[in-house]
Design a protein around this nucleic acid. Structure first.
Lengths: 193, 193
DNA sequence: GTCTATAACATGATAGAC
DNA sequence: GTCTATCATGTTATAGAC
């Protein structure tokens, strides 16, 4: 991929993930790029095409392999903690990823949702699915995976909200403490912390 | 409140919660209302004012009293289950509520987030906070409450996504089974189901 | 690969009739 | 309380020069 095109995808992903499809104009993207709006059409035929390309681009960055380091560990609880830390770090590292996911969950049509399902979870889904079979055999594994996703996505996004809540904690929550909290809750529930 | 104005707030809330502020035009709202765009300005001075009024309107519907029926129950676990069912039902009943919450979490500025914090959780926060003190004394109660919020919001929103995931369950998830899943997970973790 | 210029249309908002 | 008409601006997209 050419350098300009990749930068364009990055700028577009930044803006779209933060302000949504309708909230970002081609001029906004062009301004951030330092070019004129018309120049974008040399790289992509339409705003729609640019959006889809940017979303795909962000998702492709997250199909890393996490299962290699995991497969050697026997204890499923330990493997879970590793996966949760990996998920949190991946989502923390690229806010665009989790925001596009949440955004598409809100307004995505069936077609986009199917694409999301295929792309967003690929790196984590299969190892997680297998893991759930070990941790809680016979249970609804998909429900558990969606629970885990809900916990991680929401905690990261809610850090902006937390200071405004009634009994706000003094310092802000660090990533490792979040990982410990989620792992603990997911494994043993609220009664064990 | 006049009848037309209330209907206007409802239509606006429907559209804004589904497509976001930038994704909805005054003409979209007018079309749904069966009036012209200019007529809206008789009721609200600007798009911004209408949006804020619609959001406030939706939130005000959800400051119901749930604590009355709860205070008589001694067992904290039982009270938790009641609260979770109440949360799920409230959010299921009005998708606009949870979507506006998630939307503002994504793009809300500090001012709006503060307003959200004040309004979105008012009905549930205090009883939940107290409950956490009984269920897990000494723990970070706010983290637990945000966990619970993440679970409920995400599960409800992800029901559109679930059928597209790799190992999708056959039937769709019912509200009572969701409530049972979340309560169980939150109380005892994945290992107990 | 980027520019200027422009077409064709959508948008938020106002003025004034009824 | 709603209408028509209109304004100023912003929008996606195209044409053609460099």
């Amino acid at each position: 991929m050419e350098q300009t095109e990749e930068r364009l995808l990055n700028v577009a992903a930044d803006l779209f993930s933060a302000q949504g499809y309708a909230g970002v104009s081609m001029r906004d993207i062009a301004r951030e790029m330092g070019i004129t709006q018309a120049a974008i059409y040399h790289h992509f035929p339409s705003k729609d095409a640019l959006y889809i390309a940017a979303v795909t681009y962000v998702f492709e960055q997250h199909t890393l392999e996490v299962s290699d380091q995991m497969s050697v560990i026997d204890d499923p609880s330990q493997r879970l903690e590793l996966l949760i830390v990996a998920m949190l770090e991946a989502m923390e590292e690229d806010p665009r990823f989790r925001r596009i996911y949440l955004r598409e969950l809100l307004e995505g049509d069936e077609l986009k949702l199917a694409a999301i399902a295929e792309n967003a979870f690929t790196a984590f889904y299969e190892p997680l699915y297998e893991l759930m079979g070990e941790l809680a055999p016979g249970s609804d594994r998909q429900l558990h995976i969606l629970s885990l996703a809900g916990l991680t996505f929401h905690h990261l996004e809610a850090r902006k909200l937390a200071p405004h809540l009634p009994h706000a904690a003094k310092g802000k929550t660090t990533l490792p403490s979040l990982a410990r909290h989620i792992t603990n809750l997911f494994l043993h529930g609220v009664t064990s912390s």
